[in-house]
Simulated assay, not measured.
Amino acid sequence: MVTVKVWGDYACFTRPEFKVERVSYPVMTPSAARGVLEAIFWKPEFRYEIRAIGVLNMGSEMVILRNEIDRRQGSNPFFVEDARQQRCSLVLKNVAYLIRAEMSLQSWATDPVYKYRDQFNRRVERGQCHHRPYLGTREFAAFFAPAGEGDRPQPLDMDLGNMLLDIAYVEDPSRPEMGFVRHGPGGARRATGYHRALFFPARLEAGWLRVPPEKYRELYRLEGEDYV
């Protein structure tokens, strides 16, 4: 088990049911928590399974107006002024969380899990990361540090409804809707298929959002990967 404290001035954990305007969940999602951990330390031999997210500071909601573009940035350049759109976003201000997660090894991994856990803890203590972690969207940078003895979640009980757990990337040549990378004992390879969002009924109990482990089994079944 690894534990890390993360906080930031702003956050936006976008609800996927809102198509145009960005509306944040009131609490960090497991997929956003996984992104923070992978920014600190990632290897293809394991995957983070979020077990719980503790709310140290719920923060407050605020509406901001942001400039976005209406197309993907690719190899063909275009004038931003021709693609700019202004959209409102409901974001969170002044948030802080505790993230608890386990590392699940790929079946082909050769090193023990404690090796990766120790590497993660050393990087957190030193403030090292592969890239700056963020809280939902890249412009909302996250700070991180080891969890302290005085870090206690707020005594909150709240029904959060269906929350996004993660996105499964399903390899299926008959549905080449997108391309992604698969890792194996032979290294990385390109794959094609489609994506599928997985949700779970979320609830805060005494300030903790618990994530059901069986949902990760469903994720691995869809992706056709074997973790231990």
Rank of each mutant, 00 (worst) to 15 (best):
R123E: 04
D118W: 08
F140C: 04
G136L: 04
F79C: 01
N76H: 07
M178W: 06
P112E: 03
E125A: 13
L135D: 01
E68M: 11
G150V: 11
N121M: 08
L92P: 00
C129I: 03
Q128A: 08
A191C: 12
E125K: 13
G74I: 02
D159W: 06
E177I: 05
S89H: 14
E139P: 00
R175S: 12
S104G: 02
R126T: 03
K93Y: 12
V170R: 00
L105Q: 02
L92D: 02
T137L: 15
K93E: 11
Y114E: 04
V124S: 05
V170F: 05
N67T: 14
V113F: 15
R84A: 11
T192G: 05
Y169E: 13
E149K: 12
P185T: 01
K93S: 10
G148S: 13
A147Y: 03
P77T: 02
E171T: 08
G150A: 13
S89E: 05
G193V: 02
G179F: 04
C129K: 05
T137R: 11
F144T: 01
P185M: 11
S89G: 12
D166Q: 08
A109S: 06
S89Y: 06
F78D: 02
F143K: 12
S104A: 14
A142T: 08
D111H: 12
A168W: 04
L160V: 10
H195N: 08
Q86L: 14
Q154H: 04
P146N: 04
G179A: 15
D70C: 10
R126M: 14
S89Q: 07
R123M: 14
V95R: 01
R190Y: 09
C88F: 08
K115C: 05
V91E: 05
D82T: 07
H183N: 10
G148P: 00
I167D: 09
R117P: 00
R100V: 09
R117C: 04
F120S: 01
R182E: 12
L165F: 14
A101G: 00
L98G: 00
K93C: 11
R126Q: 11
Q154L: 15
R182D: 04
A142M: 14
T192S: 12
S89K: 14
L156A: 07
N94V: 06
D159T: 06
E177V: 06
H131K: 03
R87D: 00
D166K: 00
T192K: 13
P133S: 08
C129D: 04
R126P: 00
D151Y: 07
T192E: 10
R152T: 08
R100A: 11
G148I: 09
A188N: 04
L165S: 07
P176N: 10
R132S: 10
E102L: 08
Y134W: 11
R182F: 06
G193N: 03
R123Q: 13
N121F: 02
P185E: 15
N76E: 12
D151W: 11
C129V: 05
E139K: 03
G184V: 07
P173W: 12
V95T: 04
G136Y: 09
G161L: 10
S174Y: 06
Q106G: 06
Q106W: 07
A168C: 03
R152E: 14
M178L: 14
P146E: 02
L156N: 02
